[in-house]
Nucleic acid binder design. Structure first.
Length: 441
DNA sequence: TCTGGGGTCCTAGGACCC
DNA sequence: TCTGGGGTCCTAGGACCC
């Protein structure tokens, strides 16, 4: 918590719908719902006119169609248009301070202390008022709600307080007076499950929360979460505004219009998802070691299966190969509603001869025992080409294709643009060397 | 005519290592 | 033939956010 209200939070109002109303004047003043328009779609954003009829984000679109009047516009999203508009807004924020943290397309924090501003209440109020005008003018009428406070959480709560087109400055010293009457759901990190647990011990407002001990709170909702809420209830929040965070995972998923059983179709879907993930990884110059498959069954039960590889991947074919194997091990009877493919454990792509292709590889019979006669399996990574070439060969996982005991089929990493061939090696091939001789002591 | 898609963070158990 | 404890990695699931 700072001594002056120097953190600003901006939240664009009903953003997707507002862009649609800006671009299509006939929609202005009318209920607009943006989101999936199919039978399994959900609402991304409802305009305020549509909210008056009960339409909400995350509501199934068919339900929104039931409750909204005739004449309501149901539109699929145009992400490129939203992105372009958001960039105009973010540029306006960067005029205020170099420290801008974009949290999503339509939301950002600004550290005003890094911008050399008058941080009095009057000063930040005038600043925020000018900003709102600037945004409306630059975007052609999109409005935003602004909160300014002594911490991120107070700024965010401030921007929620008077929506749409609102402005709230929480002066230093008034944090608890603002916070305590609010429902616990106002705090970031309190969703339906946490609110329900808190309700069971008669905690409804942040003020109620303030009366719980740290021990009670962590017992109720867990270590990290409890400690975080304990601090938030006291306006104790020193999280900095950070310019850019590295992505930790990349994923793509798809809900099918109707449940899918056909194995060929499922394979094709996995390939398509892996292609999207792989190309995004390659475009961002990154790759990751853990491939995750997500499956939602006909009954909405959802599970994930993941595998961590010896080396990071960004090649769609490799990602797809792992995802397909993971899918093979899950029960698909009854049909699948959704498939997803993700890559995590990201690292900046390692360039160079590490991925060069070996020019020779020969067939053989058996993997070496790590210790002759010892029944325990050898190390999982069985082979490295001397020098630059890497062989991924893991028993029972990774790049072993054809898991017979007597031979191992190994995929050689090729250059990024052209993955190497699949070959079969034998254990007495001099190229195969245990990477890490085990130490049984 | 049920419940998207893209993320982040946390927890818990087991394996493994020292 | 008795057995601690900490740390890290991996997997799976859950809560939450926009």
């Amino acid at each position: 918590m700072r001594r002056e209200p120097s953190i600003m939070h901006l939240d664009l109002d009903a953003f997707f719908a507002a862009v649609e109303q800006r671009d299509k004047p006939s929609l202005r003043g009318r209920p607009v719902v943006v989101g999936g328009t199919g039978g399994r779609g959900v609402v991304s954003t409802a305009s305020y006119e549509a909210r008056a009829f009960g339409a909400r984000s995350a509501m199934p679109t068919p339900e929104a169609r039931r409750i909204c009047p005739p004449g309501t516009a149901f539109l699929g999203p145009r992400f490129a248009a939203y992105q372009r508009t958001a960039e105009v807004v973010m540029a306006a924020l960067r005029e205020l301070s170099p420290l801008v943290e974009q949290v999503s397309v339509d939301e950002a924090y600004v550290d005003l202390a890094a911008g050399g501003h008058d941080l009095s209440v009057a000063g930040v109020t005038a600043l925020a008022t000018r900003l709102k005008d600037t945004i409306a003018a630059a975007t052609g009428g999109v409005t935003g709600s602004v909160g300014v406070g002594t911490s991120k959480s107070l700024a965010k709560i401030g921007s929620e307080l008077r929506k749409p087109d609102g402005l709230t400055v929480v002066p230093a010293g008034e944090e608890l007076a603002v916070l305590h009457p609010l429902p616990v759901r106002s705090l970031g990190g309190v969703g339906p499950a946490t609110a329900e647990r808190l309700a069971q011990v008669k905690v409804a407002t942040v003020g109620d929360l303030h009366r719980l001990s740290l021990i009670d709170l962590t017992t109720l909702v867990g270590q990290a979460h409890g400690a975080g809420l304990y601090r938030l209830a006291r306006a104790d929040d020193d999280r900095p505004v950070v310019t850019d965070r590295e992505a930790k995972s990349v994923s793509a998923e798809e809900t099918f219009a109707r449940d899918v059983t056909d194995p060929a179709r499922l394979t094709a879907e996995i390939d398509a998802l892996a292609a999207r993930v792989g190309s995004r990884l390659q475009r961002s110059g990154t790759s990751g070691r853990t491939v995750t498959l997500k499956v939602r069954r006909y009954d909405f039960s959802t599970l994930t299966r993941s595998q961590t590889l010896a080396q990071p991947v960004d090649d769609p074919r490799q990602i797809a190969a792992v995802a397909r194997r993971l899918l093979a091990a899950v029960d698909r009877s009854g049909g699948l509603r959704l498939l997803g493919v993700g890559v995590s454990g990201l690292s900046t792509y390692v360039q160079g001869d590490l991925f060069a292709e070996p020019d020779d590889a020969q067939p053989v019979d058996e993997l070496p025992d790590a210790v002759p006669g010892d029944p325990r399996p050898g190390p999982s990574v069985v082979a490295w080409y001397p020098g630059q070439d890497v062989v991924h060969a893991e028993r029972g996982a990774g790049w072993v294709w054809g898991s017979g005991l007597n031979r191992v089929t190994v995929r050689f990493e090729g250059p990024r643009t052209a993955p190497g061939p699949v070959r079969t090696l034998a254990a007495d091939d001099p190229a195969l060397q245990p990477a890490d001789p085990p130490d049984w002591t």
